[in-house]
Design a protein around this nucleic acid. Structure first.
Lengths: 335, 335
DNA sequence: TCAAATTACGAAAACGATTAAGTAAAATAA
DNA sequence: TTATTTTACTTAATCGTTTTCGTAATTTGA
């Protein structure tokens, strides 16, 4: 392994000079700087990151908190795409990403301890129980941090525009002539809250009457529960003409139930998903949904996190909102 | 940040003693060992991994080469599940995982250089172009390494049993009375080769006549190409009664085309996928497929890699074969 | 022409751990 | 009793960098 020492010997200068030359210090002459850099390249020098980290406390390593719950995790395409965005943006900025876990060797540690131990320059939190006390503890350490789809007090966050997302869908549905719209929304979270609030606002704006039976809760990604909720809606005396689902996956659960009841989509009833996963497009009928820019969210998270790491003074901890767009499929009928 | 030095001061011993006590060296008395460990725990000591890495060249960090091609990558549920298996097994053994990329700072480097720079203890290669010269170079560095779904000369590999997978499917189809079976197989790779070979072997064993038009190639995950191939099969004078697809995703492409031609599944024609992604189960009709134990493959990869890292002498570089199983859906008719 | 400022480099300490080698004290052997 | 071994530590070097401080040599200013 070639080290600064070897380069120093080859150039007949000291290791200090080599280090400074490589890091573009101003007290090195142009001549030696180019000499050192040329030799370094020629000898295939790469800095030992452990030594750099030890000396500077910078690892160029970003920790990612991504918990694989039963219903979601990496298997969920939305999060897979967020991760992909994170990965490629980090790569393009010369950082690497590592999953945060709960173990160091054979010892259980908290997320905070884990991050301290691995000395991450920054942390991205996504797809997780934001009420977990360990997450709270991590957030309060002061480490540069970006959350995805959740806003803590005074931290930087990347969120999708859930208010606008639901509004766009509602406007589309209204234009398509729907007046009796049911909303099966996801489990309690800030995302759900924003969507539900937006739903009611739109309903009011359009002068729609939303009976309380039209709104119910279903865990995200839980296909059986969504079928069950759908069943209840179909059994209503005054059936909705369209059902909004928490996500595309649960929409499929609903669609299957509707079909099994001998009804057809969209002729008998319209359905709308959320997320814009690839199956929404290839499903027959294709599902009208709100396509979230998941990769964009991931890459924005990394870009802003690196700002926070490299320019902590001038970077303000803002809340970045990423827009999605209605992806029109064949699951909504023109009434 | 509390270091060995602080513990040494608190215990009135030298830093060497602290280090040895924490690492269970034999030349430390029981008394001081427990004292040191107690103090370390009390003070919340965690080793600085950079220092450990610098001194011992061990990082407890595994590099993962996972390239996100256009058609696959993390968005593919199979690989997402492999990754999940990797992640959880690594966590349970106290290692962390980091994606291998091509950049260090603002400099393009090869995979090999990247791994050297980050000093990964070992590497897992999955979901990638195994003919990439950079991958070859990495494989030949001698770093502990496990490949997934590909066997290099003399490296450890985790593969799914593609021969048995196809055989199990073929046996099932034969039992269901199918004799005219078409196989749209994936693009060139060792996985495809094993499957195609197994397909022909089974055909021979069952005395099936497979006209050459029944076998064609379609890129994995390419839904349009699979629809196109399906069309050709439907246009044949002597239509197959069942079509095998490269994966579940392409099977859906085929199914959609078949339905659009006014045919019904499985009554008019049967289809079979491969992988066992979640959509195969919730699709209507549910798709009969070979469910691969993707998570198992990931966790086996990590377990064996760690063996290789920690016991290089006694661990032999074998090829581990993980079995899948036929997941029976409603896409195959009893003939 | 001589002092002051600038330029370009080197010596050495430091980061936080590990570990080989050395050494007193205690235990055992002869 | 004395020599030898064992026990339980400590000293100090080391890993590969970065960075402070010092200092010759050169340039500039008056």
């Amino acid at each position: 392994m070639v080290s600064v020492k070897d380069i120093a010997a080859a150039c007949h200068v000291s290791v200090a000079t080599v280090s400074k030359a490589l890091n573009d210090y101003s007290d090195i002459s142009e001549k030696t700087r180019t000499l050192v850099k040329a030799k370094a390249a020629e000898m295939g020098y790469l800095p030992n990151m452990a030594a750099v980290a030890l000396k500077t406390s910078r690892t160029y390593n970003i920790g990612i908190l991504f918990v694989d719950g039963a219903n979601s995790g990496l298997k969920h395409e939305f999060f897979a795409r967020v991760l992909q965005g994170i990965k490629s943006q980090a790569e393009s900025q010369g950082y690497c990403i590592t999953f945060i876990t709960n173990r160091i060797g054979d010892k259980e540690v908290s997320y905070k301890e884990y991050c301290r131990n691995r000395q991450f320059d920054g942390v991205i939190i996504a797809c997780i129980d934001f009420n977990d006390p360990q997450v709270l503890e991590l957030v309060n350490t002061g480490i540069p941090l970006v959350t995805i789809d959740h806003v803590f007090n005074n931290t930087m966050a990347i969120t999708s525009d859930n208010v606008k997302g639901i509004r766009d869908l509602m406007e589309y549905l209204y234009e398509m002539g729907h007046r009796k719209i049911a909303y099966i929304h996801g489990g309690d979270s800030s995302v759900t809250q924003a969507r539900v609030t937006s739903f009611y606002q739109c309903a009011e704006r359009f002068g729609l009457n939303i009976p309380s039976e039209y709104v119910m809760e279903c865990e995200y990604h839980d296909i059986e529960e969504s079928a069950h909720c759908t069943e209840k809606l179909l059994d209503l005396k005054d059936r909705p003409t369209c059902i909004l689902y928490p996500d595309d996956y649960t929409a499929i659960g609903g669609i299957n139930l509707i079909k099994n009841r001998g009804l057809s989509i969209p002729d008998d009833i319209s359905v709308v998903g959320y997320d814009g996963i690839s199956y929404a497009e290839i499903h027959e009928p294709s599902i009208t949904t709100l396509k979230q820019e998941a990769e964009e969210m991931g890459s924005q998270a990394v870009a802003h996190l690196i700002d926070l790491i490299e320019r902590p003074k001038t970077t303000l901890k803002e809340q970045i909102v990423v827009q999605g767009a209605v992806l029109i499929g064949n699951s909504v009928k023109k009434n």
